[in-house]
């Protein structure tokens, strides 16, 4: 898989700082599972976080701080803390998404949004005023031109689309902020399935599209 589009440095930094929504972290983790380049960038951003933590002006701990820690360690049973392993990718779907798509892509309960576009909203993922959803877009479909109030991260899982900023295929991540408007067009050969997180509402630009907004609920 040749990945050509990656998250911005500013987005990686916000992710490392923990200043993104859970929804954004899910899309970024899914991309990084597929992208060694961005795993390295994340490791660097975390290292910057560690260095900056070391530079912080220390604030003295309370007098009994260390004793409290020892008694917490002794009182609470020593459970082996294991980090849950991320399941392996199945059928091109990053493993980090598996808990949200237990039956795989094939049997997702898609809901038709507008002709040519079906969606599945991932529930229980903190997203500010936005959302995380899978979209399945029929070949040749054009998504109405829109901008975003906040940010939008789109990870292509299958198929491809093109917009003003280039062609996005499997594994590519489009990182858009509120300064960018776009009108994605899906390739003619196959449907495009992508994972999209927003942290605020979208803003459609045409009158017809704006009328659609309450209906599609994006």
């Amino acid at each position: 898989m040749k990945i050509n589009h990656h998250p911005d440095d500013a987005t990686i930094l916000a992710y490392a700082a923990g200043a993104v929504t859970e929804g954004f972290s899910l899309v970024l983790a899914a991309h990084m599972e597929l992208c060694p380049h961005c795993r390295n960038r994340m490791a660097e951003a975390n290292a910057v976080g560690g260095e900056l933590l070391s530079e912080l002006r220390p604030v003295a701990m309370s007098a009994g701080g260390l004793d409290n820690i020892w008694s917490r360690i002794e009182q609470e049973p020593e459970v082996a803390v294991t980090q849950p392993a991320v399941p392996a990718a199945v059928d091109g779907v990053p493993g980090v998404l598996t808990p949200y798509l237990p039956e795989g892509l094939g049997s997702l309960p898609w809901r038709s949004l507008i002709p040519g576009i079906r969606q599945y909203v991932l529930g229980g993922v903190e997203s500010g005023r936005g959302s995380v959803r899978m979209l399945s877009i029929a070949p040749g479909t054009t998504i109405p031109h829109h901008t975003h109030m906040g940010g939008e991260l789109t990870l292509v899982i299958k198929g491809a689309y093109e917009d003003e900023t280039g062609r996005y295929g499997s594994g590519d991540l489009a990182d858009l902020d509120d300064t960018v408007g776009h009108q994605p067009v899906v390739g003619r050969d196959e449907p495009c399935i992508c994972l999209i997180a927003t942290d605020d509402r979208l803003r459609f630009s045409g009158i017809f599209s704006r009328m659609l907004q309450p209906l599609v609920g994006i």
Binding site: Y15, A17, G18, V20, T21, E22, S25, L26, L28, A29, M32, E33, R39, N40, M42, A43, N46, A47, G49, G50, E51, L52, L53, S54, V86, V96, E126
Partner: peptide, 30 residues
């Protein structure tokens, strides 16, 4: 894989997200 300060930063950050922001941060092994 990482310096001690990096590892401790991640532990503190994830705790902060869990307790102060009350959600989680999805991550992959780097």
């Amino acid at each position: 894989k990482s310096a001690v300060s990096t590892w401790i930063f991640r532990v503190a950050r994830n705790l902060q997200i869990d307790r102060l922001r009350k959600h989680k941060l999805h991550e992959v092994e780097l």
